[in-house]
Amino acid sequence: MIALVFGGSACGKSAFAERLLSACPGAPRYYAACMEPYGEEAEERIRRHRALRAGKGFLTVEAQRNLSALSLPAGCAVLLECLGTLTANEIFSPGASEESALRAIRSGLDFLEERCASVVLVGNDVFADGVSYEEGTAAYLRVLAAVQREAARRAALVAEIVCGLPIIHKGSPELFGASLSGKERLSP
């Protein structure tokens, strides 16, 4: 069972995804980290996300590229953070192309869907800034959009997060055992 949780920068999508992972079926619960831990800013971001996850009992697995080679026990639950970073790692690898990146991520999704009881994918909303980018970035955007369309097709829950509040586009968080508080309105 797949959930896709997406939104803009600092919208609260990670916190929502972690709530889902804590509630969903499957054990043990893994946090699959896509970010390469290089540089001061990446380290700071990783520190912040680790503090968010502290005490939730998630195991961390490094998932910078080639998801289908991850070592995961059958029936586990995985939160993958995030498709934007994974796509960048795949497409900007030496020798990679738009097609190879898309293929690698698709087979990764196949693998996770088959292997895990629950998969929470964190996606990125980077498609509405009205900017025309040069070809490298344009190819990146095409792959990420294709990956997220595919994830949404397979998903039992698609939630967009705005200011920490979920807009449910497909399914229901209850499918993952999570409930929304009464103050959180759903739309449409």
Binding site: G7, G8, S9, A10, C11, G12, E41, D125, V126, F127, A128, D129, V131, Y133, T137, L141, C163, G164, L165
Partner: peptide
Amino acid sequence: IGCGIVPLDREERRWREETGRLCQALA
């Protein structure tokens, strides 16, 4: 302002993240 490609400029990255977090807190 958080729905674009990650800005190359560090101050712009900081601006959009602080704005996003402030909006979460206000929400």
